[in-house]
């Protein structure tokens, strides 16, 4: 019911954009602030909402190992969308918040969604300490940094409650956080904390499982991140057993698409990867929610000697929510081994 409503909402807000966009990633930005390559990050302030921008997210994924020996994954996402401008509080606030939570086992995938008005305290991100929440889903820090977080979400008979501890620095993508998304210049501000270790508990319908693992937080805000002809993306965040990490995405369009990424060393040094440095090749598709989705990839970064196969832990990791997309943990084999998360949007 709410889902249907949200779709309606999005259709109304940006009718031409929805077909290509994701979570309100519209192609127009009337009156909203635009990403500026000269901006540098200012923490902890930039952990908080940037209300002048149209959309923004706090996006956390974790690859986990259970005490039962099985692999798991979880996702916690908070989106902010501005339906208009203005700093009104209370019910007149123009902001709408959307929460997505996912939890994946080798053979099951759980997904849930929450939606809330801004300005009334039902959802938001505040400091002192850093606190991001929508209803009873929460990402709470011990201080104003993102170094130590507690993460909770769930719905009905499933949920999770895990603690995160950052083991490395924050990583700025692109040019000091200015991440270009198309050859014509669409961009966003984008940084990550890919060095979390995780411990905690997953609540499965049949009972709790203690888990440990790694997590990756993405922070991104913009007003117009997609070009007119872009229809979706494939986004990889991989943590290799070597300690190095790779973020790579391909924005699909009518032609060759647009690739971009960041090579992150185990020590926390970031190296932007350009369009010509990344090769993504779908190897196998799975029938997911009535459509063909590539769940087996070859990913190559020749400049770093990377040639790996990326396989979904559970090919059916479908987030069948008001905005439907594929998001789940992956196994990495080949030149490097490791685990990571794959997000694929825009598969109709």
């Amino acid at each position: 019911m709410i889902a249907r409503l949200w779709i309606v909402l999005l259709v109304l807000l940006a009718p031409p954009a929805f077909a290509q966009g994701f979570a309100g990633l519209g192609t127009t930005a009337e009156g909203f602030a635009l990403p500026d390559p000269d901006t540098t990050f200012d923490f902890p302030q930039d952990h908080l909402p940037h209300e002048g921008f149209r959309i923004e997210w706090w996006y956390l994924t974790a690859t986990l190992s259970g005490a039962d020996g099985l692999d798991y994954g979880l996702q916690w996402t908070l989106f902010r969308t501005a339906l208009g401008q203005g700093a009104d509080q209370g019910w007149r606030s123009p902001h709408v918040w959307l929460g997505h939570a996912g939890m994946t086992t080798p053979d099951r995938h759980f997904a849930a969604e929450k939606i809330a008005r801004g300005g009334i305290g039902q959802a938001g991100v505040t400091s002192g300490p850093f606190d991001a929440w929508i209803d009873d889903w929460r990402m709470l820090s011990t201080d104003n940094s993102l170094n130590a977080l507690r993460l909770t979400a769930g719905e009905g008979d499933w949920g999770y409650d895990v603690a995160l501890q950052a083991q490395g620095p924050l990583i700025a993508h692109g040019a000091e956080g200015y991440s270009v998304k198309s050859p014509t210049g669409q961009a966003s501000h984008y940084y990550s904390q890919p060095f979390y270790t995780v411990s905690g508990r997953l609540n499965l319908p049949e009972g709790p499982v203690e888990v440990t693992g790694q997590a990756w937080l993405d922070r991104e805000w913009s007003s117009q991140p997609l070009a007119e002809d872009q229809s979706g993306w494939d986004w990889f965040s991989l943590s290799f057993d070597s300690g190095d990490k790779l973020m790579a995405f391909r924005l699909r369009d009518g032609g060759a698409g647009f690739r971009s990424g960041t090579w992150i060393t185990a020590l926390g040094e970031a190296q932007p990867l350009g369009d010509d440095q990344i090769v993504t090749t779908p190897l196998a598709h799975a029938q997911v929610a009535g459509r063909e989705v590539p769940v087996h990839w070859r990913l190559e970064v020749p400049s770093r000697g990377v040639s790996v196969e990326v396989r979904a832990l559970n090919p059916q990791s479908w987030m069948g929510l008001s905005i439907a997309y594929w998001e789940g943990p992956v196994q990495v084999t080949g030149s490097h081994t490791g685990r990571g998360y794959l997000e694929m949007t825009g598969y109709e």
Binding site: M1, I2, R4, L5, V11, L12, A116, R117
Partner: peptide, 16 residues
């Protein structure tokens, strides 16, 4: 966003 009646009213896009 939370009212159940929105399910009814939501059928009309204008409403939302």
């Amino acid at each position: 966003l939370t009212h159940p009646a929105a399910a009814v009213t939501g059928e009309t896009p204008d409403l939302t």
